[in-house]
């Protein structure tokens, strides 16, 4: 498949260590607070609620007490080859060649939800209702991110506004390149067990470039060729196997290892 990732710009990515993650949910809340994500009365309605970073609970299904559970945080995969972008009739979502971030432009979105259907990761949520905040709670809204209106799709932006302000700051100081710790999304910053590492996958000095070479690194549904920029680490083989679909009888050893790729 055609690789869209350009080598010239940055290619921001994330590595989530599932062996470290306790599934506490702090990242989800940090994300919601940072990005003015609205809340429903009934947040248990998972087809209507909005979660940019959703946590899944996976279990190996073995009998007590050999049960193992892995909590899997799922932000937008920020695919290098995003299936959501070409289907958008309104050009409301684009893949930025400067930073590799898949954007979502709310004011352009016409709410057709093609992108939601195209996204294999369910990373996109639709605003079925006007954004609701319990009475008085609109007072904590951040001016850095615009609240969304009814009828548009929204998703994780890798806290793009943080990149913008880091860039402005660097520009003001006469620098072109950002330091590794200068731009970090809210979930990465909030993770109490430091399970998430963030950086530029194109920059060999960033820790993420090193971590994705780890033999236990993998991505979700890698075989689709979407080239996600969110990598996971786990030593649990059963979990790694869950990350993709396999034919019956297909070698388990093949597993879900990152392919060698250029760029």
């Amino acid at each position: 498949m055609k690789k869209r990732d350009s080598a010239k710009g940055a290619r921001y990515g994330m590595v989530i260590d599932l062996d470290r993650c306790t599934g506490c949910g702090t990242c989800t809340i940090a994300c919601a607070a940072e990005n003015n994500v609205s809340v429903l009365y009934d947040e248990s309605d998972k087809t209507r609620n909005i979660n940019w970073l959703k946590i899944y609970m996976l279990t190996n299904g073995k009998a007590f007490p050999h049960t193992e559970v892995v909590y899997l945080p799922r932000p937008c995969m920020q695919c290098g080859n995003p299936p959501c972008v070409p289907v958008c009739p309104a050009t409301a979502t684009t893949n930025d060649s400067d930073d590799g971030i898949v954007s979502q432009i709310y004011t352009r979105c016409i709410g057709c939800r093609y992108c939601m259907a195209a996204c294999p990761y369910h990373a996109r949520d639709f605003n079925w209702f006007d954004p609701a905040f319990p009475k008085g709670m609109d007072r904590y809204l951040s001016p850095e991110v615009s609240p969304r209106m009814r009828g548009v799709v929204e998703k994780c932006s890798f806290c793009h506004h943080r990149l913008m302000s880091a860039k402005s700051k660097a520009y003001f100081e006469g620098r072109r390149d950002l330091r590794e710790d200068e731009y970090i999304p809210a979930c990465v910053e909030a993770c109490p067990t430091q399970a998430i590492t963030f950086g530029d996958l194109n920059n060999p000095k960033h820790r993420v470039s090193e971590l994705i070479k780890n033999p236990s690194a993998f991505r979700l549904l890698e075989r689709l060729g979407t080239e996600p920029k969110v990598y996971y680490l786990t030593t649990k083989d059963w979990m790694r196997r869950m990350a993709d679909n396999y034919l019956q009888g297909e070698s388990k050893k093949e597993g879900n290892r990152p392919e060698k790729k250029n760029g």
Binding site: T26, A30, M137, R139, Y140, S142, A190, P192, T193
Partner: peptide, 27 residues
């Protein structure tokens, strides 16, 4: 206005970490 709460890395107890409840304090 309070907009967000974050853990302090320069604090000896938690060194930046915060639990989900602490993160949602503005609500």
């Amino acid at each position: 206005r309070v907009v967000k709460i974050e853990g302090r890395r320069n604090y000896p107890v938690n060194q930046g970490a915060l639990c989900p409840l602490g993160m949602a304090g503005q609500q």
